[in-house]
Write a protein that binds this DNA or RNA. Structure first.
Length: 489
RNA sequence: GGUCUCUUGGCCGAGUGGCUAGGCAACGGUCUGCAAAACCGUGUACAGCGGUUCGAUUCCGCUAGAGACCUCCA
């Protein structure tokens, strides 16, 4: 690889050169959604972030196995629900089979991710399909002495673990601090220590989702599935584990502990975390109820939105910020992103209309390419890539007006840059204008001809009326020196 | 309360020890019958106070404000 990729590893809190364990193969695991609700903007961020990483690694020539799980069991609710499974609870509310809920929201998730041009992972395992493997892990951890059975549930023995290993190395937490701040939770009395976490949970009688086990009829603990499924498909040690910042503790910390307790090895080499989407400076999240679903975003039906936004605009919006910074949502910010996105895409269309300059322009296109790679290699700096492209947009527009000159080769080179960076790696696609049929083309031509005749005889009242009426139904007219252009907006 | 992070012009957001991204909005201009788009130009931002330095928005300290995690969460 001629361009070494550097990526921020949460484990070391440093920028590290990415070197796969078994090049050219790369194993990447990302925590997927818990399918008990519609996906919102907060789900889109990691999906897009790691989609870009996936795409970029592939572009660099790596053979990537990308695993992203579906959590369809195992998340406890510790409020008034007495450890009831989240999925089961929702099912009860809606009078549905749990698996029906799971299927519904999984389909929804896929649908919206497809809309945003997020590639499907190589493997998308479900927690409920790996109960046996999870039980095997639990047994292994018990055998190794790092877990104990209590009243049909199995808990991870943190104190035992810390005698040999460092619990808190990823999140930088100290056990004493944790001790002082751990809250009173249901089932606490079953644990030896308040910070022990469940590997297996005995199910209450009314609990729908349950499986047989040596310890009780119950369900696996909420941190176990990722450890089990990642190593099952990627090996005991693999390259990348990603997810949202909010999963850092306790979820990812527990994953490390589980792996070490089971196999003696830490399985993840590069921990990568994306930052959160905020709204009014606050985390957008399920529990706060301040989230905007992708469905609402795409159809505009939310009081915070002035209009519907195209999925590509949302993707662009996400990529305009660096993945490790918070991204503040607002209607205004989205409108700005929308404008910018169309500007970027229109410049690509204009490339086909430029008259190539016969003399070679002094612009070095290779330099732009180089800068794009440097930006991506510097911890996936997508906003910088976009900034570089907006410099090109200026040149493209200038060339169209013939105040800048681009040679045939220049034009082709820029097209190639678009294909590589914008379409392939950033995964932004031009929004196809609603299939303008041949008939529409012809009708438009008649209208524009009539308008041109009116303009020629200085009947601007008529020409403006035609333009306004077309505008009202979503067709925009632009007069250039030689002709009139139109497009559906 | 503990741990950690952040604070960039009207908004969103990159980045750097000196050469001041980008997008959106605004203003002036070119073009146009007028628009729209595009192009050109303008606004000289880095929370506050100290310190290090020839020089700090960028490094260090303090203060203020905001946020995240400590409980399921992308």
């Amino acid at each position: 690889m001629e361009h070494p990729l550097f990526i921020f590893n949460t484990l070391s809190r440093k920028l590290e050169q990415f070197v796969p364990l078994h090049s050219p193969f790369v194993g990447m695991y990302v925590c997927g959604p818990t399918v008990y609700g519609d996906p919102h903007l907060g789900h889109a961020r990691p999906a897009v972030t790691f989609d870009v990483l996936f795409r970029y690694l592939q572009h660099l020539g790596y053979k990537v196995r990308y695993v992203r799980n579906i959590t369809d069991v195992g998340h406890l609710e510790n409020d008034a629900d007495h450890g009831e499974d989240k999925i089961a609870k929702k099912a009860r509310l809606e009078q549905l089979e749990p698996m029906e809920v799971v299927q519904y929201y999984t389909d929804r998730y896929h649908y919206f991710m497809d809309q945003m041009n997020v590639k499907r992972p190589s493997i998308e395992p479900r927690a409920s399909g790996h109960i046996i493997e999870q039980q095997e892990w639990i047994q292994q951890i018990i055998n190794n002495g790092f877990a104990y059975v209590s009243n049909g549930s199995v808990y991870f023995d943190i104190e035992k673990y810390t005698q040999h290993f460092h619990y808190g190395k990823l999140s930088g937490r100290k056990l004493d601090d944790l001790l002082a701040t751990t809250r009173e939770l249901e089932g606490q009395h079953e644990k030896r220590h308040p910070f022990d976490f469940a590997l297996w949970k005995k199910a209450a009688p009314e609990h729908i989702m349950r499986w047989r086990s040596p310890w009780s009829d119950g369900f696996p603990g909420w941190h176990l599935e990722c450890s089990v499924m990642s190593t099952k498909y990627l090996g005991e040690v693999f390259d990348i584990h990603g997810g949202g910042m909010d999963l850092l503790f306790p979820h990812h910390e527990c994953e490390i502990a589980q792996s070490v307790a089971a196999s003696g090895k830490e399985s993840v080499r590069y921990w990568i975390h994306n930052n959160l989407v905020t709204i009014n400076g606050q985390k957008m999240g399920k529990s706060l109820g301040n989230f905007i679903t992708l469905d609402e975003l795409f159809n505009g039906k939310n009081s915070l939105l002035s209009k519907a936004f195209h999925p590509m605009v949302v993707r662009f919006f996400i990529l305009q910020a660096h993945y490790r910074g918070t991204l503040d949502f607002s209607n205004e910010a989205l409108l700005a992103a929308e404008k910018g996105y169309y500007r970027l895409m229109e410049a690509y269309q204009i490339l086909n209309k430029i008259k190539p300059s016969p003399n070679t322009s002094p612009l070095s296109m290779e330099e732009y390419q180089q800068k794009c790679f440097e930006a991506l290699n510097d911890d996936l700096n997508t906003p910088k890539v976009l900034a570089i492209f907006f410099e090109l947009v200026k040149i493209i527009n200038g060339a169209y007006q013939e105040i800048e000159s681009l040679s045939e080769q220049n034009i082709q080179f820029i097209k190639d840059l678009y294909h590589t960076f914008i379409f392939e790696i950033l995964g932004l696609l031009p929004i196809e204008s609603q299939q303008s049929t041949n008939l529409l083309e012809k009708v438009m031509q008649i209208l524009l001809d009539e308008r041109m005749i009116a303009r020629h005889r200085k009947d601007f009242e008529t020409s403006d009326r035609i333009r306004q009426k077309l505008n009202n139904i979503g067709i925009e007219i632009k007069d250039t020196k030689t002709h009139t252009e139109w497009k559906i907006i």
